[in-house]
Design a protein around this nucleic acid. Structure first.
Lengths: 214, 214
DNA sequence: GATTTACTGTGACTTCAATCACACAAGGAA
DNA sequence: TTCCTTGTGTGATTGAAGTCACAGTAAATC
């Protein structure tokens, strides 16, 4: 029963606002699944049968382009749910988005068959779902904002700030090439812009990592 | 009581799937509000006190940039709800989005105080809300896709196709300048790209309107 | 009909970002 | 050590899109 104990602990810590009965249902029906760093939680075209609540780790969400290029959208932290897994689960449709664990991650898988009951019976659950949608929608609006209105250097600054905030570290372990990928740009462009930021004293560049100073 | 009769009719036609009791609540508590073409249903920074269901007309949703520039996201048709009005209403937060009537429009305003009950009591309502979020989220993902991965000529083609689909007409009453605004581009660029499309036989250009041939 | 306004067409130029082509440097593997 | 992979720095070139400048033209108003 080690598994159940774990689930119970996660739920106590991550969702203290849930009603006891709701917690109990999640504990009884949820399955804890581990993902290694780099492993996919969700792939383009995949059919979802569970909603995923992130219990531990960090998950990166990408939009995938036609030619296989990736575009970084946002991170999911412990306590977050994957809005798309809820949506796709509910409609049993496939998603055009990729979710990749960037750290060893544990996900609490909730069967979609429960969604109806949970929604109707537990107010805190329905608030949680709405809040999940709302925050992801806002985040996506920010993404639109950036690519629609901002130039590459502004987008890069925003990206680094976000990394710093979400990874909670000044030293960002990332290569120029990876940044270029996330922003759907090219390595040289990013290198040059980073050099300018370094000259302005905003970062210090190293091999394989960047010190963020702002 | 003319107003109530109207509301009742709209609800019968647009939301046949709703339970009778749910329809009744909406009829009793909803208020029908008219908007002229060009009028705002929702403005950046505005606090929402109602969810809006579109009963008649057509509404255009924009993201607003820092310097007041607009970026077109999607249309709302009769039977659609404004996902953001639901989200903002629920959280009583302000939105960074503009909704503008492009035709004379009627909106059924549902007080947010009802949301809790409706969500808990009526399954068809909660399905409707989820579906609203889902479809808007998908639409926003398409927007991201376009600006992240596509070039201007592809975006223009996509835009015209969307106009054609949503306005259900081959003859699009729009100027090059307005298109440029919606795509956050410039008039000259759009004119030139349209000219090329005309040379390829995909459109015929006129003053103030475009015949879409595909 | 004359004037004015709004829309369209196009050449010339600028700018930002992407791409090409290398040189070089750090660090692990042989 | 030497080799080799991977990451970084930088100049040169290209291309797409934005800007400037101005000409023409349809339609609306006087």
């Amino acid at each position: 029963m080690k598994n159940e104990v774990n689930i119970s602990e996660y739920i106590q810590v991550l969702f203290p606002q849930f009603e006891p009965a709701l917690k109990q249902i999640l504990i009884e029906n949820g399955v804890l699944k581990s993902f290694e760093a780099g492993e996919m939680l969700m792939q383009t075209g995949q059919n979802m049968r569970s909603t995923i609540l992130i219990a531990e780790g960090l998950v990166k969400l990408y939009r995938e382009g036609d030619e296989g290029n990736e575009f970084f959208m946002y991170y999911l932290h412990p306590g977050n749910a994957c809005a798309l897994s809820m949506i796709c689960a509910t409609k049993q449709e496939t998603s055009q988005v990729m979710a990749k664990a960037v750290e060893p991650t544990k996900g609490l898988m909730i069967p979609i068959s429960l969604m109806d009951t949970l929604m109707k019976e537990y107010k805190t659950w329905y608030y949680f779902v709405l809040e999940t949608y709302r925050s992801r929608f806002e985040e996506l609006l920010t993404v639109v904002d950036n690519i629609a209105f901002k130039s590459m250097d502004e987008r890069l600054e925003f990206y680094l700030k976000k990394q710093h905030r979400d990874l909670k570290s000044r030293s960002l372990t990332i290569t120029h090439g990876e940044i270029a990928n996330d922003l759907n740009s090219s390595r040289e462009v990013i290198s040059r812009l980073l050099k300018k930021m370094e000259q302005r004293g905003e970062v210090i560049l190293h091999r394989n990592y960047i010190e963020y100073l702002k």
